[in-house]
């Protein structure tokens, strides 16, 4: 067991899978970073965030393919490659860019299996960066996973730590459906214990990070770390929280959430997406339908406000749900009568 960053865990997962299966390749913008050019002699940059560092040196230009800035072509080529038997990992540098290529994702890749009568699989992983918190502003900071999860045929994964990032990425690459793998940019440098060997974290299986009896808190992506920082304060206030990281949103481990709510009677969801039709509101809706009689208080979702992500640091800080808001909401639920 070694300590690795979230970034290193992602790179390691790709290297292991590319060694295991010659059909796996990576395609995207600047993923080697100039080495795509035949006459380039410098060091491969491995993408602006270093998320593909070392891949070019290990596997070369045939399987680490630099592209023009051309997201529709990247996603469409990845979809077509997957449909014809390869296993592409396509990088959508920032998830915000889905707006220029979504047709290839939701009208094409997501529908191939259904509309072609299960003739073939579409084993495609779209790795993409989500999230606010590092000052990237309105067009590089969004978390559109609720939109992705709305699409039948897509699977959506939101790792919150290095261990899960590696295991979930390996599972995603081996999966035979298109998976949108949401890497949170604020977590790239996060440290954690990551085994050197290959292992899978199954899609659709959540994890209970801490057991508790008063309130179930489901946290997505970056919000997992924020709520973990609240545990001591909550305990000081006499609140025993059960903390759940769903790890993937589609498929979603609804049974884990129902079981927890049946025990605690209270549900708080922490979700970084926009509030209207957010994934969090879907979770509370399912809980209301399935385990209504267990509830001792109304369900609650904390998201950012319904506005784009601002650039100013003070506004961005105010945008994300913080510890104070989470602790306050938990108290309200505990004290609800």
């Amino acid at each position: 067991m070694t300590i690795k960053t979230y970034r290193e865990a992602i790179i390691e997962a790709m290297i292991l899978e590319m060694k295991r299966d010659e059909k796996v390749f990576v395609i995207g913008e600047d993923i080697s970073g100039g080495r795509g050019c035949d006459d380039f002699e410098g060091e491969a940059a491995g993408g602006p965030m270093g998320l593909t560092q070392g891949l070019w040196d290990e596997f070369g230009a045939k399987r680490v393919i630099d592209t023009p800035i051309s997201e529709t072509a990247i996603m469409g080529a990845a979809a077509g490659a997957a449909l014809s038997g390869l296993r592409p990992i396509a990088e959508l540098m920032f998830s915000d860019f889905f707006g220029v290529c979504f047709d290839q994702i939701y009208n094409q890749a997501a529908k191939f299996r259904f509309m072609y009568g299960d003739q073939g699989a579409t084993p495609l992983v779209i790795r993409t960066m989500i999230g606010a918190g590092i000052g990237c502003g309105p067009q590089h900071s969004q978390s559109p996973y609720s939109i992705f999860a709305n699409i039948p045929g897509l699977k959506v994964v939101t790792p919150s730590n290095p261990y899960d990032a590696k295991g979930l990425l390996i599972s995603s690459i081996r999966d035979n459906d298109p998976v949108i793998f949401c890497e949170h940019k604020a977590l790239l440098g996060m440290d954690g214990e990551v085994p050197d060997d290959s292992y899978e974290v199954p899609l659709g299986k959540g994890k209970i990070l801490k057991e508790g009896s008063d309130i179930s808190i489901v946290a997505i992506g970056q919000m997992v770390g924020v709520v973990q920082n609240c545990i001591k304060n909550l305990e000081q206030k006499g609140i025993s929280a059960e903390i759940i990281d769903p790890r993937s949103l589609s498929p979603f481990d609804d049974e884990m959430v129902y079981d927890s709510v049946e025990k605690t009677g209270r549900l708080l969801v922490l979700d970084e997406s926009n509030p209207v039709c957010s994934f969090g509101s879907w979770i509370t809706s399912m809980v209301s339908e399935e385990v209504f009689s267990s509830l001792k208080a109304p369900t609650k979702v904390l998201t950012p406000p319904h506005c784009p992500v601002p650039a100013a640091p003070n506004l961005e800080a105010a945008y994300l749900p913080d510890m104070e808001t989470i602790i306050g909401a938990s108290e309200n639920l505990k004290n609800y009568t």
Partner: peptide, 25 residues
């Protein structure tokens, strides 16, 4: 035959993707 396509022009990148088999494999 990788599919008829009701989104006009969307098939072109898909054909390019199938051609990647020459480069990758």
């Amino acid at each position: 035959m990788l599919g008829a396509n009701a989104i006009v022009g969307a098939n072109a990148p898909i054909a390019v993707g199938a051609a990647l088999r020459q480069r990758v494999m």
